[in-house]
């Protein structure tokens, strides 16, 4: 396992208003991964990104880029980082090509028209290069923001809610683009509150709530570990109540008794399914169909945040 490309150490941010946006946050980002930071609004996602990118000053703690302090080596750190902020903020009277070239040079890179052309083509913006930004559609503006962030060829890319307010088709394109970037070696950290997005793309998922990382886990491991499976049995004859023979499995009846639901732990050695089915056969309860469903990241997320709330 190589050194983390980005290390966040005991990062704390208290705003003047007294709000503690981050409470001593620790996080390591691995080289070349897609890391999804998940959390409700106001959880501290944007604050964390803004501190790493030098836009907000932390109250305490530090950030290391390849082991180097991000303030002491700010030039190197910032040249390596690209940021796509949540808001579509741009100089609306500028032509598209100018604004993207500006971003590249601002970060100290030699002008490279061929490179900019490639970035704009990858984002399907090349045909619009002469357009004034205010005349572009919302989806195009979002892509312009990405083009600006990529213009200086960063190897760490922050995407703050990249698909907020973006239609389904464009969202798919965005995911495709992020995957291509990762293939090219870029490390990507994205925040989202669309669980679907994290589930679709991330290698690892971090869940942040009220300024604390409640969990960091491989996505697949997380879903396995916390994933509950649910067995649905479509009964041939509806039941009025759960028969006492099945009580030890604690199944639930729904659809006016037509569906029997049994929740089990997918990671356990004994799921209890075979014995339940045997007990049902012995009790003479027949079923015509069955399916099992794994709980989604969304279910996991809701239960985590909920747990934390009830613990507090």
């Amino acid at each position: 396992m190589s050194e983390p490309i980005l290390s966040i150490r005991r990062l704390r941010k208290a705003y003047a208003s007294g709000t503690e946006a981050l409470k001593s946050l620790d996080l390591d980002i691995r080289r070349g991964e897609i890391f999804a930071l998940l959390g409700p609004n106001g959880a501290g996602k944007t604050t964390m990104i803004s501190i790493v990118c030098g836009i907000v000053k932390p109250t305490d703690g530090e950030v290391l880029i390849d082991g180097k302090n991000w303030q002491r080596h700010f030039r190197e750190a910032r040249t390596r980082i690209g940021l796509v902020p949540q808001e579509l903020t741009m100089d609306v009277f500028e032509p598209l090509l100018n604004t993207v070239s500006f971003s590249r040079e601002l970060f100290g890179r030699r002008p490279d028209p061929a490179r900019i052309e490639q970035i704009l083509k990858d984002l399907s913006l090349w045909d619009k290069r002469k357009a004034i930004l205010k005349d572009l559609s919302g989806g195009m503006k979002r892509r312009v923001m990405i083009a600006k962030a990529l213009a200086h060829e960063p190897d760490i890319l922050f995407l703050d809610e990249p698909t907020a307010g973006v239609d389904v088709e464009l969202r798919r394109d965005m995911w495709e683009l992020v995957r291509r970037l990762r293939e090219g070696g870029t490390t990507i950290i994205l925040t989202t509150h669309y669980i679907e997005e994290a589930e679709e793309m991330a290698d690892r998922v971090g869940v942040i709530n009220k300024g604390e990382l409640i969990l960091v886990e491989e996505k697949t491991a997380l879903m396995q570990k916390l994933g509950r499976k649910i067995l649905h049995l479509q009964l041939t004859e509806p039941l009025a109540a759960v028969p006492p023979e099945l009580a030890q499995w604690n199944p639930q009846l729904s659809d006016e008794g037509a569906t029997l639901t049994y929740e089990f732990d997918a990671k356990a050695d004994r799921t209890g399914i075979p014995s339940l089915l045997t007990a049902m056969r012995d009790a003479g309860i027949a079923f015509k169909d069955l399916d099992t469903k794994q709980s989604s990241l969304e279910d996991i997320f809701v239960s985590l945040v909920h747990e934390q709330r009830s613990a507090a």
Partner: peptide, 13 residues
């Protein structure tokens, strides 16, 4: 005012 200052602040300047 527009928020584009984010880019200046995050640049190696």
């Amino acid at each position: 005012f527009t928020g584009t200052i984010y880019e200046i602040l995050s640049a190696p300047l």
